[in-house]
Design a protein around this nucleic acid. Sequence first.
DNA 1: CCAACCGGGGTCTGCCATAGTA
DNA 2: TACTATGGCAGACCCCGGTTGG
Length: 382
Amino acid sequence: MASRVTTQVMHMYPGGRLFSFLPNFFPAALLKINYLRFSTSSHECSTEIIQKPENGVLINNLTVMGVDIKMARRRQPGVLRKLITHEKCVAEFLRSKGANNKTIASIISRYPRAITRSYSHLEERWQLWQSIFKTDSEIINIIQRSPESYFRSSDNENLGKNISFLCSLGLTADDLHRMLTTAPRTFSNSLELNKQMVTFLQDLAVSLGVENPYEFVKRIITKNAYVLIRSTKRIKTNVEFFTEALKLSNSELIKLLQGHGGEVLDLSSDYMKRNFINMSEQLRSLGCTPEEVKKFFIDYPPAFYASSEKVSNKIDCLLEKEINIKQLLKKPRVLEFSAENLKNRIKELERVGYDFRKHGITILDSSRRRFEAKLKKLNGDG
DNA sequence: CCAACCGGGGTCTGCCATAGTA
DNA sequence: TACTATGGCAGACCCCGGTTGG
């Protein structure tokens, strides 16, 4: 906290004096360098702080490579002051794996610390990732998507241990592939952190009286790859929230977590609570009983995911056409379609005189192809 | 043949804070 | 003391089609 404030304060007081004995001095960098001087208001005496200058040669190299210096500086200013970096090696390495110059520049702009990794280090890390991915381009795609996930940790040994650990849980090659693709951060977590989550889930299973805790854990983390990149605090809060909000018995909770409940387990706790409250209120105000609301969430936990604004939009779409809310309770998956899509479908159906009161809203819950086929038929019948 | 049930698939980072380290 | 490594947070759905039972 303190150091953070200091940094901000320093940026508020740019300017100051220059040193002439800077290593790697380079005119182009001069303009960017902050030699700072500031006074702390909390102390009587004024303190002078001299910021180490940026490495001009490095800045020049990065500029030539097309790196967004402003972005890099904003994200990890310290890297730009380092005297020894490996930007050329990193670029060469990534290029050898099929990344183009633009991609490389973007990667370094977004995660400058990447250039502190050596060639041999990168080679070693790549080999570990290759134990899960088949092609270089798959890995490049992920690095491009999230440079931080790949580069944040310099601990290759830890990465190897993580892979072994996850394998030891009985995860298949496919499972690992999906996890690393969807939540690459998992593999940069410390082994200890991943173990903590697994232990937490195992303990939970045991306390609930799950027959096979081992399978329970496996199911949760394969169903929801994001669980392992969340804090145990969040997962714990969410489990407690499920239990309290829906007044679940142990067996009901187990069933929920092993089913669709697992899919929303990683949501931000407050967000989930807000959505629950909003949705419950809407349903109640439209005449649903508390029991119906509870059943709705148990049968259809993805409802926790639905943000209040989108849900309101969708419900409005239905109500406008005098569709009874009870029909939604029967077909909650209708909520999975975008409001836009629902609106269009309802419009199309109105055109052919579809009677929702008679036929319900099941027709809205179908794939595009099936819906269109159905519509064509309705059209044909007049 | 068809509606209804139901599981699966894509996708999810970029930032901040801080303990630890050189 | 600057910098690194890493924990943690906010943000937030939509869709397809195989199978099955009537």
